[in-house]
Amino acid sequence: MPVYHRVTQGEFLAQIAAKYGFRNPATIWDDPRNAQLKKKRKSPHVLMPGDILVIPDKSEKRQEAAVTRVHQFVLDEPKVKLRIALKDWDGEPLKSMECVLKVGSQIYNLTTNAEGVIEEEIPVTATEGTLTIKEMGEEIKLQIGHLDPSSEETGWKARLRNLGYLAEPGEPDAQTLRWALEEFQCNNGLKVDGTCNDQTRAKLENTHGS
């Protein structure tokens, strides 16, 4: 019997798959019963709390083994790739920038590439981390898997925040939000009207990279 999984904040496909014991998350995502959700969400790692994911029944994996010996089956800890582009205030990539990514007890010393990007395989169970860019005096607290789809208000606001247009914590007031939208529109050659229309949302998603 399939399980209907209701997505909660912070969950993403690879993590859900690991929870249900799937080695390959695509098995879930490619299930025909998830076709509608697949159409709605561009990435199974950017889901909305409340989305329903159908978890198909697991198929068995058979392994022949000699009966006279002790066999050890080791499951690798499932990993997921985290990619972050670091940019200066004007959108220029921060190249060759040394930074430290901490996820759980793991510490990764990374350097951004020519596009300002860092990339690391992190445990699929990770929910939070910190990224420190010493040179710029920045310590960024990451909530892994918490990015909502850009079609949702929480999602496009999150992208405005990540892109530096909303720099203060908490819910922005009307003028602050208008500032953020207009500056983003202005910097990206869109019509400047301070409202988050489809075009703006699409551009936000595109600029953010997810």
Binding site: H45, D88, E128, Q143, L147, P169, H208
Partner: peptide, 22 residues
């Protein structure tokens, strides 16, 4: 005050997250 925690999505294929300074 620092921005709230930054929500990021792990890559499924090759997606990025962007963090821009102010």
């Amino acid at each position: 005050k620092p921005r709230d925690t930054i929500p990021v999505a792990p890559a499924f294929t090759n997606e990025l997250n962007t963090y821009q300074l102010t």
